[in-house]
Amino acid sequence: MPKNAITLNNGVEMPAIGLGVFQTPPDVTTAAVEEALRLGYRHIDTAAAYANEREVGEGLRRSGIARDDVFVETKVWISDYGYDATLHAFDKSAGKLGLDRLDLFILHQALPSAFDRTLDAYRALEKLLADGKVRAIGVSNFMPEHLDRLLAETSVVPAVNQIELHPYFQQTALQRVHAQHGIVTQAWSPIGGITSYREAAKSTFDDPTLLGIARLHGRSAAQVMLRWHLQKGRSVIPKSTKPARIAENFDVFGFELTTEQLDAIDALDTGVRGGPEPDSITLEAYGRDIPEA
């Protein structure tokens, strides 16, 4: 396992930086995964709802990297919540990926409007963990109140909560809850790409504080943001389909941010979420069929 590994609360090691493939079209996903693995990535993050698990699996096979040397993470979509449905969701994801076992299997959303189904889905993850079909389980986009109920009504503490987290949206209260329970904070949109999609909004890539720190280190703003996450002990899954960007995002181990620089980035938090509000996720609004393997 690479030197940049994070040890999860069940002792499993997970590379701190991985390639994300959210919104990566299937026809370019295989090449992106293959290139990332060639460059040294050993962690790939996908999801049933991304509709590219099959292509991720093909990239893994084409890379020639031994299966046990790559940490593969995927997510169950809300349409497949419920005990039996979630057990079958594993079969669908594993089948598309071409794998017998997943390294990390997580619930994609809390689904607050049907939290009993969420709990049943998580109990299915616990079963998969007990049966050795997954090495670790976790959640994504869970807020403190969701974690409180999950912890009260299930047995296994999530290894990871994957959340929107970048300099402009840091969710510090949620991160404190993670720390209290030994849950790794995993950042999606870790370099604030989501801030670039909003009209008239500031983008992290143009932020003068980040650009100033980047100049001092001879790095890009993206590399500074990823380094900030890593020094704070977080997992990151930046996404790109461009080989040069994939390489740049992985080249973040040859420099160190000072305490003052870390504090300056911490001070950029606006508290403004870029993605959907977790409580807005309902089956009526976001439900979709996840195809069979």
Rank of each mutant, 00 (worst) to 15 (best):
K3Q: 13
N10S: 05
G11W: 03
G11A: 05
V12P: 00
M14F: 06
G18S: 04
F22I: 06
Q23W: 10
T24D: 00
D27L: 12
V28F: 07
V28S: 13
T29W: 06
T30L: 09
A31G: 04
A31L: 07
E34S: 08
A36V: 02
L39T: 08
L39Q: 09
L39H: 06
Y41M: 04
D45V: 07
A47M: 10
A47H: 06
A48V: 08
A48E: 09
E58D: 15
G59Y: 03
L60Y: 05
I65Y: 01
A66Y: 07
A66N: 13
D68T: 10
E73I: 14
E73D: 12
T74M: 02
W77T: 02
I78C: 08
S79E: 01
Y83L: 04
A85R: 10
A85Y: 03
A85V: 04
T86M: 01
K92P: 08
A94I: 03
G95R: 11
K96H: 08
L97A: 09
L99I: 09
L102E: 00
I106Y: 00
P112R: 14
P112I: 13
S113W: 04
A114T: 07
D116S: 11
T118Q: 01
L119C: 03
A121N: 06
A124S: 08
E126K: 02
L128C: 04
L129T: 08
A130H: 02
K133C: 08
V134Q: 02
V139F: 04
S140T: 11
M143E: 15
H146S: 11
H146N: 14
L147N: 03
D148S: 14
D148L: 11
L150Y: 03
L151N: 08
L151D: 02
A152M: 10
T154E: 00
P158K: 00
P158L: 01
A159S: 15
N161F: 08
I163K: 03
I163N: 05
P167Y: 02
F169V: 08
H181A: 07
H181F: 12
S189Y: 13
S189R: 09
G192L: 14
Y197M: 15
K202D: 14
S203M: 14
T204K: 05
D206N: 15
P208W: 11
P208N: 11
I213L: 10
R215V: 12
L216N: 13
H217Y: 09
G218C: 11
G218L: 09
A222V: 14
W228E: 03
H229Y: 01
Q231K: 10
R234T: 06
K242W: 11
K242V: 15
P243K: 12
I246A: 10
I246R: 06
E248D: 12
N249D: 10
N249M: 14
F250C: 11
F253L: 15
E256F: 13
T258G: 12
T258Q: 05
E260I: 01
E260M: 07
A264T: 03
D266E: 12
D269H: 11
T270C: 05
G271K: 08
R273N: 05
G275M: 11
P276T: 13
P276W: 11
P278F: 07
I281N: 05
L283N: 06
G287K: 03
E292H: 13
